[in-house]
Amino acid sequence: MLKKLQHQFLKQILGDKTANMQQRIVNQGELSNDFRVSIYTNAYRMRLKECIETDHEVLGIYLGDALFDQMVEGYISEFPSHHTSLRYFSERLPLFLTQNKPFNEHPIIAELANFERNLLAAFDAADHPVSSQNDLACMAPEHWPSLIFQPHPSIRLFTTDYNSVETWQALKQHINGEQVEIPAATNVKQSIWLLWRNQDRLTEFKSLSPIENEIIQYILNKKSFADICQMLAEFYPAEVLEQNILKHVNMLIDNQLVSLAQ
């Protein structure tokens, strides 16, 4: 009995008017039964829309009201929430945007959504200490080869075919009241971006060179420092190898990306 009522109500909330919930409720006062039911159906869509707006502020500005509303309607219908927290409701928005017209005709849209998901993931990923230059200096030379860098749990790699991160930055500045020119969408070259959260709990991102990307891939795959050096030795001429190894290690340490472990 209760089960049937809940399934019927949910069906109505999800947008199926044939659920006929108004038949199951009492006539009271001035408000019609249709109106009473619509309070719930409207609240459902409003709440989920607000959630997408909050998580994807920049995407919202990029799309403009009409397209944003179209996206919200489509996404809510196709991907109802299976989570107890709204934090995860929009997880599949990038997927929706790559699968549905007109959004998938402009791949930068899904890239913008994906970038914002990655920022959120870095924001509340697990905490972990990172090592400093001092920790590095204290490390005995014989321990270096077997060293495995522990990546900070917030680290995310993000590949773009379009200038989506540059566009995101410009739109963010625009939201903050700065006078900026929003770049036109172009797919000049593929870029790889690193996102992470620093020890002040601020989310950062930077573009990676192909060799930096390779190093991060090695670290994420728990390869040792010796393995990384071997890979770098194939990339750099012998006379500049050491200085480049040092440069890359400094990049990892100064950006608070790793801790040192044996």
Partner: peptide, 14 residues
């Protein structure tokens, strides 16, 4: 929630 779908609303009971 019902049917594993969350309404994210506080829905009344009979």
């Amino acid at each position: 929630s019902a049917n594993q779908i969350n309404s994210h609303d506080l829905l009344p009971l009979p």
